[in-house]
Design a protein around this nucleic acid. Structure first.
Lengths: 145, 145
DNA sequence: TTAAGTGCAAAATCTTTGCAAATGT
DNA sequence: ACATTTGCAAAGATTTTGCACTTAA
């Protein structure tokens, strides 16, 4: 991780009133270097030697509460995490983009460009949030075959 | 449960090569008498005195594989189950309708009438399935306040 | 009769909690 | 110095597995 990146992670932490600890920086580093959301098992595997599993749980929970990352559950119910875009804030996520869950490699992509079209829904139901998970075969897996 | 219903449950089982056991009929009975998807904890609570927790897991798994029920994960990752419509078959679900997850009562509704609008998605990604979970306040909870 | 289904015990996971030690500011 | 954060141990919850007993067909 280079200096510029490290600095921006640190800002992210300070901005949210969090201490700059090694564990947190390491989590941010992993998340920011991937082109898809990162599953919790992947994180555990990647940084499990350095960071206790319990600490990871707590870091992810804190980050999500602060609006630094958002959580997407894949089809199996496994938690995947991705860095939020700027529009997220404490206790308020705006991750109303589409997520793509590959049936082959199981990765979860954030398709930031794709917006969920407006829906007509039965009267009486008040919409607060929408979450669309599309599953299929991702670009990488398609090309690999 | 009246006779007509019982008979149709039995057909459902026989049609799928499953034995008509008391446990299975009871699960079908609960699921068919609710206007929303049923969470696994609810089922456990409802029929836990009669049916072993492990058996319930196995019944739900079998039903899902046979296309009798489909599973929806709510925001917390809790499994919810609903009877499939006729278009579902073994190992192939067509539950591409919208689910509504109430933030207040936590119920999951199957909005069968609402279809997911076609999406423009990045080239290379092949869509096989779509799952839209809308969350907010449901009709019942709105009216109660 | 016999393959399928169930219950029980126990293992394997996953997630949370409490508390003392370590760390960042 | 002091509140925050972490690690460890342990509890709690969820899900799976193995095997003997039971039941539907």
């Amino acid at each position: 991780m280079n200096n510029i990146e490290t600095e921006s992670y640190q800002n992210l932490l300070v901005k949210n009133g969090l201490k700059k600890t090694g564990a947190r920086l390491q989590v941010l580093d992993v998340l920011s270097h991937r082109n898809s959301a990162t599953s919790q098992p992947y994180l555990e595997n990647k940084i499990g030697k350095d960071i206790d599993r319990v600490t990871l749980y707590r870091i992810l929970k804190t980050f999500e509460e602060k609006g630094i990352i958002h959580r997407v559950l894949d089809k199996q119910g496994t938690a995947n995490y991705a860095l939020c875009t700027s529009s997220c804030s404490e206790n308020h996520h705006h991750d109303e983009h589409v997520h793509f869950n590959c049936n082959n490699c199981l990765r979860v992509y954030c398709l930031d460009d794709v917006k969920i079209p407006p829906l007509k829904i039965e009267k009486g139901f008040k919409i607060e949030d929408m979450n669309l998970i599309v599953s299929g075969i991702c670009k990488d897996c398609n090309e690999a075959n």
